[in-house]
Design a protein around this nucleic acid. Structure first.
Lengths: 337, 337
DNA sequence: TTTTAGCACTCTTTATATTAGATTGCTAAC
DNA sequence: GTTAGCAATCTAATATAAAGAGTGCTAAAA
């Protein structure tokens, strides 16, 4: 357990380093951090904190930077989670007030807002289809050989897809299909659209396979389709000094370009709350030099999308977490009322 | 006019520089370029070409690199436009064979393929809605207060949008609307959905403004919506030596992040053929250090989407243009047959 | 026992100089 | 018109030195 002064020193170092991106010297902490002692005393405290693993040095005679353990302690014990200004609150509210018709747009707007307020790159992904129930399926003929299929889920997610046929299809056929599909699928989880169902549908349907086959295939395809990942503020990262290293910059762009790393990153958080992964805490090798903060936007236990920030380990955790908490609250208000 | 040997020298320098990214010395051209003369002779030719503006030096005693005028001459006069291997042809064909149901997906696949084959970053954008005619509008009730609107255009573009109402809506109302909208809009260009039409619809519709207003607004919104821009292979650029400069890398990411620069870039080409913009030839300030190659995928004069490559001025124009030509041909075959 | 002043020591950063290597332009010969 | 030869020019790499920042330790002060 750290005593009060050590906590103060650690907190001061994290905050100072987050601000300046420079190793923090004992001298820098003697003023403006409420530490009423000399630099020599602080040096002693720093040495203790380093021995305990909370601080690192870049070389023998450098100032200190927080270690991952140091950041972790800061996030768990020391951060102020209301690090958000009135202007930021106003800005966020105004952005989220935009009337949107689809949940996915709301998630995108929230991600964009977070990126603007925190100046970090955000990534967002829509709700996982697998966790949803089919509320209704609707087929609409768009011509003699083209049909639109619309699938509504219980959380209000809408999936549409165009289906083309090799032969003419009648309104009557569509109606029958509509009835059959709904009969079988309403209220079922989306994964239901699988082998057994397929067989059933093929059996029951009296007409051409040419008609049913593309429908089933296309619907399966759309529902299993990887969720789209949206990036906001990729360029913002390049304003940070850690991205002056070409290797880091390249890694970063590579990560953003590798959609499945991003998807895994967003999907790995299970907590209801905000997930913070600092450096090595990230499962993915590629992310071990970065920090990631994510949260799932949920209403009544239903996943409506996930938003993540990816930035340097030297991230302003206070700001990021405060903003995310506030946005999460706002999103819940919007969804519920 | 350049004599044959000068052409050969220029071509050799462009090709050598495209390959190596190093200024080309007179010595490097004495072998493997069909130039049967000494390095001193080549030095003389180089000096002439530089005086004429086709070559540049990085410093007084460096080898030569092509100037923008040099690249332009190469693109206009010297490149081989069948610089594509059998494997590449096979690969492209296999990628484009995937059955897709929406035009926009086809454009995306083509852009992805180009990026894979050329190793450059590609950008693509769907068809411009403004150039299209409305073929049909279809409204589908999805619940008592939610409706789906589907707009089909003459080129097969499908736009869907969810519309939510503040009051219950009946099937009958939807049917009437369906009839009215189609009656007024079928065959019309998409811009028709504007003031005069709005008034007409408000007048004719006998029921609540609460119903018609959101419909018109949402449809307008969707149709005027900026086309989505798709990026492929943003990370590929970072393998190129010119991106070892942090400034260049940062600029590049900034450009990719600024969607309207990308959109303008894609929309500015008018030629039927392939557009090449080398460095300063780009209108946008941000692009003046890069080269851009775009082409519009058209069928029967109708715009179906635009694909662009953005890369260094030291771009493999032969490869890029060859691949684009081939892909364009393939796309036309797919659309027509 | 805790805190602090003082100072040698370490390491980074910046500046400067030196050298090796590549390539040109020019001159004069072929 | 072409080429060999060579001084001149510039880059890139390496070495050296000096300045500056910061620590750790010791011994004195509180």
């Amino acid at each position: 357990m750290l005593d009060e002064r050590k906590k103060k020193v650690l907190q001061a170092i994290v905050e100072e380093y987050v601000n300046t991106a420079e190793p923090v010297s004992s001298n820098a902490l003697t003023s403006n951090h409420g530490l009423d002692c000399s630099s020599a005393t602080i040096r002693n405290e720093m040495a203790d904190l380093e021995k305990a693993g909370y601080l690192d040095k870049t070389h023998t005679s450098s100032g200190r930077i927080p270690s991952e353990k140091g950041y972790r302690y800061y996030v768990d014990e020391l951060l102020k989670d209301d690090d958000i200004s009135l202007e930021e609150i106003k800005y966020i509210s105004s952005k989220l007030e935009t009337k949107v018709n689809e949940i996915e747009d709301l998630t995108k707007i929230a991600a964009n807002t977070i990126s603007e307020v925190t100046h970090y790159t955000t990534v967002s992904i829509g709700p996982k289809t697998t966790s949803q129930l089919i509320q209704e399926i609707k087929f609409v003929l768009l011509g003699s050989r083209m049909m639109l299929a619309v699938i509504l889920t219980d959380t209000g997610l809408v999936k549409e897809t165009i289906i083309k046929f090799d032969e003419d299809v009648t309104e009557k056929q569509i109606e029958t299909m509509n009835y059959m599909f709904n009969n079988k699928l309403k209220g079922q989880p989306i994964e239901t659209i699988d082998r057994p169902l397929e067989e059933y549908l093929y059996d029951e349907m009296t007409y051409s396979v040419n008609v049913i086959k593309p429908v089933i295939e296309q619907i399966k395809k759309v529902l299993k389709e990887d969720e789209k990942i949206y990036l906001e503020g990729a360029n913002k990262a390049f304003d940070l000094p850690e991205f002056n290293s070409l290797e880091v910059a390249k890694n970063f762009v590579n990560i953003l370009d590798t959609k499945d790393v991003m998807a895994d990153m967003l999907n790995s958080g299970f907590a209801e709350d905000i997930n913070v992964y600092i450096g090595e805490e990230n499962e993915k090798e590629e992310l071990k030099d970065f920090s990631v903060v994510t949260f799932k936007h949920k209403v009544n236990g239903k996943d409506l999308g996930t938003i993540g920030i990816i930035g340097p380990k030297r991230m302003d955790y206070s700001k990021v977490i405060s903003v995310m908490k506030y946005i999460n609250k706002k999103l819940n208000e919007i969804e519920k009322g």
